[in-house]
Amino acid sequence: MNKNLNASINSTVQYCTVCHRIFNQGESWFYCPSCLHCHVCEMCKTRMESSHSHRLIRKFSLDYGIEKICTRPDMASRILSAIYFHSERSCFGVRNFSNDDSDSNEHSYVWLTFKIIGQRIKNFSYGLEHFIKPHYHLAICAANRPEWLITDLACILQSIISVPIFHQSNDRDMTFIINHTNISVIVCDKHILQRLIRLQSKCSTVRHIICMDDVSDMNSSKSLLFCS
């Protein structure tokens, strides 16, 4: 395997696991939701169809050309189009709110550009592929913050159904929503993490809890993926 291919494997660029060719922008490719790290080009898919027992699902490279994403009507293409056209413009603003000094709050925003947010969305969407299949349900339970929207937009890129859960809901309501929608993955902040771990025994469909914050000082029996 050559040096360029190694670099692409370690980045967010998709490649064929059979012929090891890097997918071109806008190229359609196929992946198997049942097999880990199985994504193949159209030619290899034709060759392996008779020997592969699972159904292969068609996808498009997330970094396809702007001339194509501008003409597609789906939400994922609109998100990628905005990231491309407004890459250097401010996208999300975050501030530390202080009730004691309201005059300084107006100018205390720290802005993240479309380019930075777009890369975080795409990185997280690639990570979600290893935890949840398309059209399955993922819950988001956290206070208002950039990672909340990053998670929601990443779900759109992967055709995952996001289910918002108010972070101040009581245990009964949280358990009902999780069980009623068959949630398999929950994305939360560290303030709600231990509570969700405690409720997991009542939620049989939950397989992974993904935390937005650093939890290196916490012990958890669940799988943790950082939204960064």
Score class of each variant (00 low, 15 high):
1 M>H: 10
2 N>E: 15
2 N>P: 08
4 N>F: 12
5 L>V: 14
5 L>F: 11
6 N>V: 06
8 S>P: 04
8 S>M: 09
9 I>G: 10
11 S>C: 00
11 S>R: 05
12 T>N: 14
12 T>C: 13
14 Q>I: 00
14 Q>C: 08
16 C>L: 02
21 R>W: 02
21 R>I: 12
25 Q>H: 04
25 Q>I: 02
28 S>I: 04
29 W>K: 14
33 P>W: 01
33 P>F: 01
34 S>Y: 15
36 L>Q: 14
37 H>S: 15
40 V>N: 01
41 C>D: 10
42 E>M: 09
44 C>M: 05
45 K>M: 09
46 T>Y: 08
52 H>R: 03
53 S>N: 12
55 R>C: 10
56 L>G: 05
58 R>K: 14
60 F>Y: 13
63 D>M: 05
69 I>D: 08
69 I>W: 12
70 C>Q: 14
74 D>W: 07
74 D>T: 09
78 R>I: 00
79 I>Q: 05
93 G>A: 02
94 V>T: 15
100 D>Y: 13
102 S>Y: 10
102 S>M: 11
106 E>F: 14
106 E>M: 09
109 Y>R: 01
109 Y>S: 06
110 V>E: 13
110 V>Q: 14
110 V>G: 00
112 L>Q: 13
112 L>W: 06
112 L>N: 13
114 F>E: 03
114 F>N: 04
115 K>Y: 12
115 K>T: 00
116 I>V: 13
118 G>E: 09
119 Q>L: 13
119 Q>P: 01
120 R>V: 03
120 R>H: 09
121 I>Q: 01
124 F>E: 12
124 F>Y: 10
125 S>M: 06
128 L>K: 03
129 E>N: 11
133 K>N: 15
133 K>V: 08
133 K>L: 07
140 I>H: 01
140 I>T: 12
142 A>T: 12
143 A>S: 14
144 N>L: 09
149 L>Q: 07
149 L>F: 10
151 T>Q: 10
153 L>S: 00
156 I>A: 09
158 Q>L: 04
159 S>W: 00
160 I>P: 10
161 I>H: 11
161 I>F: 12
162 S>M: 01
163 V>Y: 07
163 V>F: 07
167 H>N: 11
167 H>D: 08
168 Q>E: 13
171 D>M: 00
175 T>M: 05
177 I>A: 05
181 T>H: 15
183 I>E: 05
185 V>N: 07
186 I>S: 02
189 D>W: 06
191 H>Q: 14
193 L>M: 09
197 I>S: 13
199 L>D: 03
203 C>Y: 06
208 H>C: 08
210 I>R: 02
210 I>A: 01
211 C>L: 05
212 M>N: 13
212 M>Y: 11
213 D>E: 08
213 D>S: 08
218 M>F: 04
219 N>A: 07
220 S>L: 11
220 S>Y: 08
222 K>E: 14
222 K>T: 14
222 K>D: 10
222 K>Y: 06
223 S>P: 02
227 C>Q: 10
227 C>M: 11
